[in-house]
Simulated scan of single mutants.
Amino acid sequence: MSVRKDIKRINGIEDDIGVLTLYLHTDASNPDLNNGEWKIHLKNEIKDLKYHADNAAPEAEKKALKKLLKNVEDRVGELQRDLQKGLVIFTSADEKLWEEMILQVPVTTTMHWDKAPAVQQLQELVQRYPNTGIIVLQQQDVRFIETELGSIKDEFAYSWDLNREDWLDYGGDTPPGSRSSGQDDFQQRFEENKSRWYKNLAPRLGKEIKDRGLECAYLVGNNENVRDLEDHMASAHLKGVLPKNIGMKPSHEIVAEVYEELV
């Protein structure tokens, strides 16, 4: 399920006693957080809501809020090794709602206690980091990575088959990265025909972008190859180009570079 659908479902929930929402910025690469300062920020948020519970809340609300704060604090401790850049938790006093999301994008640390979940920040994140395709070129091999909020939802690969004169869909498998027999000949034919071969591939990529409901796509690869494919892609599908030859990197590192430099 997409985060947009999660938001729609969560946003319809109410609790007469209260719903607790946590946004926690946990990015260890951030110089302000790399010594675990996010734990201090979390304790401060919990402290403020406990003060509210002790000084302004009716007894039923006080009991429910303190219980939820304890549950959330314990859960963050359990998730500590898995945290990335952000964490979101929604939980209700009636215990019908517990939703947690470990995000690959940063959030602003804050806690909310209200009759309904505080989804606004999550909605803003989805607007900023929508469902996106990242198309990674390595000459005759092309990876397509589908992301949302910086997380990889799906990926597959195409590779040009010289004998069939067509792109083969390798799904989630890795295409052959080496063609040792006749590699020099293949390279020469690739250079001579790549514009035509990329023209053949562009409609397939465009169909994937449309069928998956992606809002945009980014091209990644060396400048010359990216330019050749870009010429055949619909401009409405492309939001940016990263002229870097990083196709051999793991997918999550490619996504991180694209987000850092283009998003």
Rank of each mutant, 00 (worst) to 15 (best):
residue 2 S to R: 04
residue 7 I to D: 04
residue 9 R to G: 12
residue 10 I to E: 06
residue 14 E to C: 14
residue 14 E to R: 15
residue 15 D to S: 14
residue 17 I to G: 10
residue 20 L to F: 13
residue 21 T to M: 04
residue 24 L to K: 10
residue 32 D to L: 03
residue 40 I to E: 11
residue 43 K to Y: 04
residue 47 K to H: 06
residue 48 D to T: 05
residue 51 Y to S: 06
residue 53 A to R: 03
residue 55 N to I: 12
residue 60 A to L: 03
residue 61 E to N: 10
residue 66 K to E: 11
residue 71 N to S: 09
residue 76 V to A: 08
residue 76 V to L: 10
residue 76 V to Y: 10
residue 78 E to K: 12
residue 79 L to Y: 13
residue 79 L to H: 11
residue 83 L to Y: 02
residue 83 L to C: 11
residue 84 Q to D: 14
residue 85 K to V: 01
residue 85 K to R: 08
residue 88 V to T: 12
residue 89 I to D: 09
residue 89 I to V: 12
residue 90 F to S: 11
residue 91 T to D: 14
residue 92 S to Q: 11
residue 98 W to A: 06
residue 99 E to R: 14
residue 100 E to Y: 13
residue 105 V to A: 00
residue 107 V to Q: 01
residue 109 T to G: 05
residue 110 T to R: 14
residue 112 H to Q: 14
residue 112 H to Y: 14
residue 116 A to E: 15
residue 117 P to D: 13
residue 123 Q to P: 07
residue 125 L to V: 03
residue 129 Y to P: 04
residue 134 I to Y: 04
residue 138 Q to V: 09
residue 139 Q to V: 01
residue 145 I to G: 04
residue 146 E to T: 01
residue 151 S to A: 11
residue 153 K to S: 00
residue 153 K to L: 00
residue 154 D to L: 12
residue 157 A to Q: 06
residue 160 W to Q: 02
residue 161 D to A: 11
residue 166 D to W: 08
residue 168 L to V: 01
residue 169 D to I: 07
residue 169 D to K: 05
residue 170 Y to F: 09
residue 172 G to V: 02
residue 175 P to S: 14
residue 176 P to F: 02
residue 177 G to F: 04
residue 179 R to K: 11
residue 181 S to Y: 08
residue 183 Q to C: 02
residue 184 D to L: 15
residue 187 Q to C: 02
residue 188 Q to Y: 03
residue 193 N to C: 07
residue 196 R to W: 08
residue 198 Y to R: 07
residue 202 A to K: 05
residue 204 R to W: 05
residue 205 L to H: 02
residue 207 K to T: 08
residue 208 E to F: 10
residue 212 R to P: 05
residue 216 C to H: 10
residue 217 A to N: 07
residue 219 L to I: 13
residue 219 L to C: 07
residue 220 V to I: 15
residue 222 N to F: 00
residue 222 N to W: 00
residue 226 V to Q: 03
residue 226 V to H: 03
residue 226 V to F: 04
residue 227 R to D: 13
residue 234 A to Y: 08
residue 244 K to A: 09
residue 246 I to Q: 05
residue 251 S to H: 15
residue 252 H to R: 06
residue 255 V to G: 09
residue 256 A to T: 00
residue 262 L to C: 12
